[in-house]
Computed example of a mutant assay.
Amino acid sequence: MPIARRHLLAGAAAAGTLAATARAAGPSSAPSLAGKAILITGTSSGFGRAGAEHYARLGAKVFATMRNMPRAEADELRKLATDAKLDLTVLELDVLDEDMVNRAVGEAERLTGRGLDVLVNNAGIGITGPVEVQDMEATRLAFDTNVFGYHRLARAVLPGMRARKSGLIVAVSSQLGRVIVPFAGHYSATKFAVEAMFEQLAYEVAPHGIEVTIIEPGGYPTKVWVNRNRYSAELRKRAAERHTAGYPAVVARMGEEDGSGRSADVMDIPRAIAEIAAMPAGSRPLRRPVAAGTVPQVAINEVSARTQLAMLGNSPLGAFVKDVLD
């Protein structure tokens, strides 16, 4: 059963139930997305690639975006769209480039003839290693991609959504946006920022009929490991010894992490997003944990919601918070 946005967990005893229901619905319960225009970032691989195809097969008009075109992954998606007769358009979009973001969103709106129904903010990177070893180049790239990129996209789609008084913005976060693992670089820091930014956005846009859902995946076997190793290896090579000296074993592993042992189904994330996109307006959850194993952020999400309501529920801002949480 979907967890409605306006129904908080009754208490810690519900955590076990959520751990089961937080996993995405199976293919047999796939909803219809007919009539919905969806733009998704980072579709060259992973959740983005799987999602672009999944939403299109469910009837959505999909705008699959990726950077560094032309590239084989874009050609593959275009061929799929032609062969399977899917309403799927590939657009070039680098989330680091605000002009490119605005052009891609503008083109999607032009082709749709209106504002978008759903934005899936998905493109992201990871760079591992101790915080001390993260130089400003790595720090800027992590935040510019994972946080500022999401912000650029949200700003680009919101005027069109506000004009129609409807829309859904999905932010793909992580379990590590609520819990912290040592030596994961700034990944948790960026995902904590995503969690905060998009919860705040949810309060602010609710009066405009727009909803926000934060997806919190556990570990999945996506290509993020390949890219993470490349970025981490580059950082290790240029890192100064005075910063690496305190963590020799950790630094030696930077760029050599192995995510291949993960067996969770990457389709869990697109299925969860499709289910939420198909839900009636006003009933979508603020957060959705999705994992093949444990979901440690459940208790944090519950406490966070209670704390927000306790702090602001009876204040002049209470209506904004209650519209999302209560």
Rank of each mutant, 00 (worst) to 15 (best):
198 F>M: 06
157 V>K: 08
101 V>N: 08
49 R>N: 10
210 I>Y: 06
58 L>W: 01
35 G>E: 12
175 Q>C: 04
6 R>D: 07
301 N>C: 04
186 H>R: 03
49 R>H: 14
201 L>Y: 01
194 V>W: 00
174 S>L: 03
305 A>K: 04
75 D>S: 14
267 M>G: 05
319 A>N: 03
63 F>S: 01
20 A>H: 10
294 T>Y: 00
76 E>H: 07
184 A>F: 14
170 V>W: 02
24 A>C: 12
81 A>I: 10
5 R>Y: 00
38 I>C: 09
59 G>T: 04
305 A>C: 06
110 R>D: 01
283 S>N: 09
201 L>S: 04
104 A>T: 04
192 F>D: 00
43 T>H: 04
257 E>A: 15
292 A>N: 09
17 T>W: 14
28 S>Y: 11
111 L>K: 15
96 L>M: 13
284 R>E: 07
52 A>P: 06
22 A>H: 04
233 A>Y: 06
72 A>R: 10
265 D>L: 09
12 A>D: 12
219 G>K: 07
17 T>M: 13
6 R>A: 02
56 A>R: 05
197 M>G: 07
113 G>S: 07
177 G>Q: 01
214 I>R: 08
260 S>Q: 10
139 T>V: 14
23 R>Q: 14
66 M>E: 03
268 D>P: 05
19 A>F: 05
315 S>A: 11
191 K>S: 05
54 H>D: 01
162 R>L: 08
269 I>L: 15
133 V>I: 13
77 L>A: 04
146 N>A: 03
53 E>A: 14
38 I>D: 02
184 A>N: 02
167 G>P: 03
19 A>C: 12
5 R>F: 01
307 T>H: 12
146 N>G: 05
133 V>Q: 02
25 A>R: 12
130 P>C: 10
84 A>I: 01
323 D>Q: 15
206 A>F: 07
3 I>P: 02
194 V>F: 01
80 L>P: 01
171 A>L: 00
239 A>M: 12
142 A>H: 02
18 L>V: 14
208 H>A: 15
65 T>H: 05
108 A>Y: 04
196 A>Y: 04
75 D>Y: 00
62 V>D: 02
83 D>F: 06
144 D>A: 13
264 A>Q: 13
179 V>M: 03
219 G>M: 13
2 P>D: 11
43 T>I: 11
151 H>S: 06
287 R>K: 09
40 I>H: 02
66 M>W: 06
216 E>C: 14
81 A>K: 14
122 N>F: 05
38 I>S: 04
238 R>P: 03
94 D>W: 08
191 K>T: 07
27 P>C: 01
326 D>T: 06
78 R>E: 15
232 S>T: 15
245 A>N: 08
214 I>C: 07
